[in-house]
Amino acid sequence: MYLMQSKERAAILGYGAYVPYYRLPTTEIARVWKGGGSGPNVEKAVAAIDEDTVTMAIEASRYAMKMAGTDKLGAVFVGTESKPYAVKPSSTMVAQALGQHHTLAADLEFACKAGTEAMQIVTGLVGSGMIEAGLAVGMDTAQGRPGDDLEYTAASGGAAYVIGRMSKKALAVIDCSTSFVSDTGDFWRRAHERYPRHLSRFTGEPAYFYHIENSVKTLFEETGHKPSDFKYAVFHQPNPRFPVEVASRLGFTMEQIKTGLLNPLIGNTYSGSSPIGLAAVLDEAQPGDKILVASFGSGAGSDAFCIEVLEGVTGARGVNPTVRSMLERSTKIDYSTYSKFRDKLHK
């Protein structure tokens, strides 16, 4: 058995998304670097000059705690590949801002899947009875080298989850999950480098598809679930095409993935990508709906979850802004403003 399932079930008690205010149309990137056209996605979300993973994690976490109605966290995990410091934990800054001190705090890094592994760890801590509730954040201010194909999609945003013991107010139960990893060098960033490097087409088949297909198939084999059992599915979204392709290969329809498919409008938020897709689904899912979530992180691995929506979800509506409303509250910027915001100009 490879299935991960806590002895006592843990549940999502609250969640909060964060999408920064600024959008860079990919036509701007194409205009500057390729002489015209656009990228695979329409726009990408860009953090303001005074935002970083910590500030965005704090905002999303405040929402999650408000919805959960909790002011006590036994764990704070921040999953990110864009820590503000190379050495100095992001999680303690987030914990301090949330007023949490008697808490386990750690930063997790696994390219784009650090957010979902944070969710698995908190699920384990809750399910074992070690803590009442904990926070799992997937958040990034992802950066692509100017002119690189990655620049079209590398975006800012993510989501935070308060996961705790089952209760009447719980929004959704985390029934089980799987993880599948291998040593695959599809994408990396060496120490002291500003931008990651990647092996373009190699990031597809041996990396993204191979790992997600393995984690999801293992989940199906060991639970007996099949795609039609799920009302929604969320796959990691490095671009608009991969999640559609992997959904199709695994037997999911466009109808099942469209709610959580945000890449065309905000780009790839890395560690935030699958968590924010799940948040968009929870914004509209009904009690009894099952949700499949499968993340992917380069290097490489995939976590797949089976989540079932509970009655508490209806009571949580309206507490926080929805992901859709965050997509709408935005303004477009040009490439030069983006360069200033994301420190691509060097004086």
Binding site: A48, D50, D52, V54, T55, Y85
Partner: peptide, 15 residues
């Protein structure tokens, strides 16, 4: 919460 001030390239970030 935002970055309030950044102490150059090597100093601390203040929120």
């Amino acid at each position: 919460v935002r970055r309030a001030k950044v102490d150059g390239d090597s100093g601390q970030i203040f929120y």
